[in-house]
């Protein structure tokens, strides 16, 4: 999961302080693993260096936590690209996908498209594996099957999420 892209995405709705970002992230995505402040600052400085964010202003009193960040045009394009690019299908992808879907909903992007392109990518992977399995020996088949079953599970999750997009949008908007 890319924390950088997530934070960028959160910035899209408007400039935020570092601690605001942490709080928003924890609320939406960090149910089981809250971010450390250090993670936020190191990420933000990397983004700053790459020109994806800029410092919008510094509150009096100094200290890194006082910086207010805003997303740049390059940053918005980066988030867009990241969301549109299907993840490489692999196990334990859900948290990234979930983040992407929520971010898309938060930023009024089409979440269904993200899910559909992901399922398409998953199927493409499954086709490759199916093909490999067909040509391979028993060991190949078993290995491929393992992957296939996991991908299938992801795919089911994708389908389920697609079916529940409406509800999710309501929950996120709260």
């Amino acid at each position: 999961m890319s924390i950088g892209h997530t934070l960028l995405g959160l910035l899209e709705s408007g400039p935020r302080h570092g601690y605001d970002l942490k709080r928003a992230f924890d609320e939406k995505f960090g149910h089981d693993r809250p971010l450390h402040y250090g993670q936020v600052y190191s990420t933000m400085s990397r983004l700053l260096k790459n020109g994806l964010v800029e410092v919008d202003g510094i509150e009096a009193g100094g200290g890194p936590e006082r910086k207010r960040y805003a997303i740049t045009e390059a940053g918005i394009t980066d988030v867009q690209r990241w969301l549109a690019t299907p993840e490489k299908p692999e196990p334990y992808l859900q948290s990234t996908l979930y983040t992407k879907v929520v971010l898309a909903l938060l930023t009024d992007r089409n979440a269904a498209d993200i899910l559909d392109s992901q399922r398409s990518e998953h199927l493409r992977m499954m086709r490759i594996l199916t093909d490999r399995k067909r040509k391979g020996d028993l060991a190949d088949q078993l290995i491929c099957d393992h992957a296939l079953f996991h991908l299938e599970a992801d795919l089911r999750w994708l389908e389920l999420t697609t079916a529940r997009l409406g509800k999710l949008a309501e929950a996120v908007a709260k």
Binding site: L123, M126, R127, T130, L148, E152
Partner: peptide
């Protein structure tokens, strides 16, 4: 079933009577 669909070259998805 995705694993059955994996035997295809291409897929379309039908949702609420609309295809994609």
């Amino acid at each position: 079933e995705a694993r059955v669909a994996a035997y295809s070259d291409r897929e379309i998805v039908v949702r609420d009577g609309k295809s994609r």
